[in-house]
Amino acid sequence: MLELKFDYADCVAHSEKVVWALDDVMTEGQPLDFSKPFLPADLVRHLDGVAGLDEATRRQLNQIAGNAYLNLFQFVEEYILATMMEHAQAEVFGDPEALRALTRMVDEELKHQALFKRFRRSFDRDFGHSCGVLESAAAVAHEIMSHSPVAVMLITLHIEWMTQQHYTESVKDDVGIDPFFKSLLHHHWLEESQHARIDMLELSKLAGYADQATRDRAVDEYIGILGAFDGLLAEQVTMDLASLESVRGEPLGEALQSAIREAMHQAYRRTFLWYGMTNRNVISSLQKLSPEGAAKVTEKAVAYA
């Protein structure tokens, strides 16, 4: 349906070339360096306009957001791995190359979760202050997976391509961020690049069996999931503000808190929603599935820029 120029065997071959071991990227208990920001300037650009933050506080807010950023990936990988296990189960005795690609993807997602949990344990120990992050991964996984299989694949495609774009456009060439954090994102990106292609192959397969009304509905469901995701991002911002106040040891004050809240929420929206909704591979897939739905997504994306 999507007329793709790669297949499952290509994804397996590439995965075998770039595979890495968890301990080679981060050992358990590895100390973190907090002298540099974690997230690239481009992903937190909305904070540039917030006055009243000294350099140290900006760096700490960036690191709080960096911890939340990795946690959000750990969070969504909960439902992605459950979804891809289902897709793998559907290929038992079917297409062996698809089964290999899907089971490798599941293993890699589990490894990414383990890596991000490892990072979080080091962060919680070394940052010096408790920082709240979203914890309801299972509830969110349940909510997402209660949608149609095509809608679930659409949000998965969004997340995987968004990850690619973060790394290639914002992380790779940012020389000011912590090199270890950059290395984590690099290794994540290496394997996610196959996952994005596997998602397209799976989406193509599922969409091929769906009629136009089902495909149109799936895009509406995808837009609904993004709306719910936006609510989670707002929750994360509230936790980030509490973390920042804990670091400073005093309240931020109403005006500053409001300015940071607005800037952080917009930064997260752009990072997690806008990037995926405007990614050329996501858009071209949406256009083939549902031209009307693709137009709705493009229109909605403007608010998240």
Partner: peptide, 15 residues
Amino acid sequence: EAMGRSLRVRALLRG
């Protein structure tokens, strides 16, 4: 039975 379980998941994914 194992083949059936796989096809059952596939049927669900197909709608």
